[in-house]
């Protein structure tokens, strides 16, 4: 069956383009949508539809919810930030970092205290990033960290999550290192990228520059298994240095 999204944009050249040969060569250096032809001053039908497919995937990634089944299948439980909807999630970044008392209570009841490393997932701005990457990431991170003798806390999922939930969750569970795995703002190349924000003893007054960040984790960027192995190394380094971010 036809799927217009299968062909990479870099191989996409309009048939009637006079500079087809040159475009084949120069398009190796860029993923920009060049050489796509024209109908009058507008786009060809195929290029027009491909743009909308890519942009719609990116938009859907932001506005769809991670399903409860996805969370259960990953062996996680769920808490929420102060936001009650995707609308609040995108318009109130200040609420997306707040974990209210009842949700804090759930964490206190269900999580192991004082871990060396606390890992949790957040939907952030891409729901598909969870189903695409979380299983591989969690497995490799847990095995890798425990192999190095570090204790790993009880993992969970935060709905309507921003990175700065770490400022509350870190002290609440008394974790030495917190690693937030969160969906990135999607682009037109991929809608399922995840970032890791890692902080040594995060706290409410910490600076943004105290996070060590690994971004572009997806099958189109840094593969999740590869990224997880890299994050294990980073966490080891952070644990030893007792600091994270630009001062590391």
């Amino acid at each position: 069956m036809k799927d217009i999204t299968e062909k990479p944009m870099q191989q996409w050249i309009s048939k009637d383009n006079k500079a087809e040969k040159a475009l084949k060569r120069v398009k190796q250096n860029t993923t920009a949508r060049i050489g796509i032809g024209r109908s009058g001053a507008r786009y060809k039908t195929d290029a027009f539809l491909r743009f909308w497919a890519d942009q719609s995937a990116a938009s859907d990634a932001v506005f769809t919810e991670v399903t409860p089944e996805t969370i259960v299948n990953l062996g996680l439980f769920e808490i929420k930030t102060k936001c009650r909807s995707k609308f609040e999630m995108i318009t109130r970044p200040d609420w997306g970092r707040i974990i209210e008392k009842d949700q804090q209570q759930i964490l206190k009841e269900k999580c192991v205290k004082d871990p060396d490393v606390q890992i949790y997932f957040g939907d952030g701005l891409s729901s598909p990033s969870i189903s695409a990457n979380a299983e591989d990431m969690l497995q490799v991170l847990k095995l890798g960290l425990e192999h190095e003798g570090l204790s790993v806390g009880t993992p969970f999922f935060v709905r309507y999550c921003r990175v700065n939930t770490a400022r509350t969750i870190g002290p609440l569970l008394n974790a030495k290192v917190v690693c937030v795995l969160i969906g990135e703002r999607p682009g037109m190349q991929t809608d399922e990228s995840m970032s890791a924000y890692i902080a040594y003893k995060p706290h409410p007054q910490m600076l943004e520059s105290e996070y060590t960040v690994v971004s572009n984790i997806s099958r189109h960027g840094i593969a999740p298994v590869e990224a997880a192995a890299h994050i294990v190394e980073l966490i080891l380094k952070i644990s030893k240095a007792k600091k994270s971010g630009i001062s590391l």
Binding site: A32, R33, I36, A47, F51, D54, Q55, G187, M188
Partner: peptide, 12 residues
């Protein structure tokens, strides 16, 4: 911008 898609700044 090529077909409005900025591949560096990730916006349209």
């Amino acid at each position: 911008v090529p077909q409005a898609d900025d591949i560096m700044l990730m916006y349209q």
